[in-house]
Design a protein around this nucleic acid. Sequence first.
DNA 1: AGCACA
Length: 452
Amino acid sequence: MSTSGQPQFRYTQTPSKVLHLRNLPWECIEEELVELCKPFGKIVNTKCNVGANRNQAFVEFADLNQAISMVSYYASSSEPAQVRGKTVYIQYSNRHEIVNNKSPGDVPGNVLLVTIEGVEAGDVSIDVIHLVFSAFGFVHKIATFEKAAGFQALIQFTDAETAASARNALDGRRHVGSCHLRISYSAHTDLNIKFQSHRSRDYTNPYLPVNPTAIEGIMQPTVGPDGKKKEPESNVLLASIENMQYAVTVDVLHTVFSAFGTVQKIAIFEKNGGTQALVQYPDVTTAAVAKESLEGHCIYDGGYCKLHLSYSRHTDLNVKAFSDKSRDYTIPETGYVVPQATRAPSAPTVWTNPRSAQMFPGSDYATAAVQAQVPQGQVPAWDPTGQVSRSTFASVPSTFPGQTFSPTSPAYATAVIPPGSSSIALTGPVSPLQANMRPGDASPPGQPPFYG
DNA sequence: AGCACA
């Protein structure tokens, strides 16, 4: 049922709510399209930067008559439609709706997400990136990171126009040096750069400290007495969860790792088809104890959810305060700063900056970073269990009839095991976790009584 | 200057 055949010409095209605009200036952004078209009706969708030259666009009106009025107007007008002084040619699109308009990277903004293909992270210095992108305007900040897609950088300009000009000039099949750049927009408006380092810069703040992360790139891997590579210690543990037959939630991890001290932040993510988590303690000592105690142990009996722990290179996670995959227990508004009684290390949490940029390896940084923009304390709409809201903790037991745990159960006491104690055998007959949680429960294992 | 995209 093909309708192929004659190419359609202007005069024979059937009207459509969707207009096709061409000969647009490269810099043309959605706002300019709207300015041009909105006198004729309500615009329900747009798509700009279309075509090989990115100089075409589509505009969809709410009503067919509005599109007709615009085409009619300019058909008889002595002044052509213009964007920034450039004549724009308008005709009915041969489609009747704009599809797939808003892929996230197409929403213009002042921050670009740049993927540099075919290079190792170490091959491109941040200074080169800065140089290249400075050609289009003042570069405020740069954050680089690695993910599966390759080496990426977030580049913050003053405004969307500047960012667009850089994108238009560099995106696509162009090569800068030998690098292949793919550029889209980030949802960020303001990157939060904590340190000047080999992977991030804030050019608006020359006094920003150069910090440990900067040293990481230089630091040689330390070698232990056995000659094996020994990872530097950290207050953040990287946990790989093996044989994950049961859901491992933030709350489950919080319960497990809180046995050794205050857990500040947790982030769960997927890597290489497996599940990993970053768990942040206030200090290295606590992390070390937790690491030694939990390494190789299983969260659930029967070899399920076996933990493998290493030190993360990170010292401060910035996680979305409250999501199904992450939690920041240091944000006061969430009511999560729970001193672990006698166990709480008193180390000052000077590095704890809830608003700092989020970076953790192996995760989808772009996604995570977007999440970081969610206002603190905001409970995401996505909350399948309804359990993670602070206000519901008190009612957790009643929410799960048939679940036998009680918030005042002494079982909690057994969850707090002296650091270094050899009795930490999660797979043992009296696994502290068994008393608290049921494998397969999507619900948190319950919170200590102080929530009630 | 002539119709997107995943």
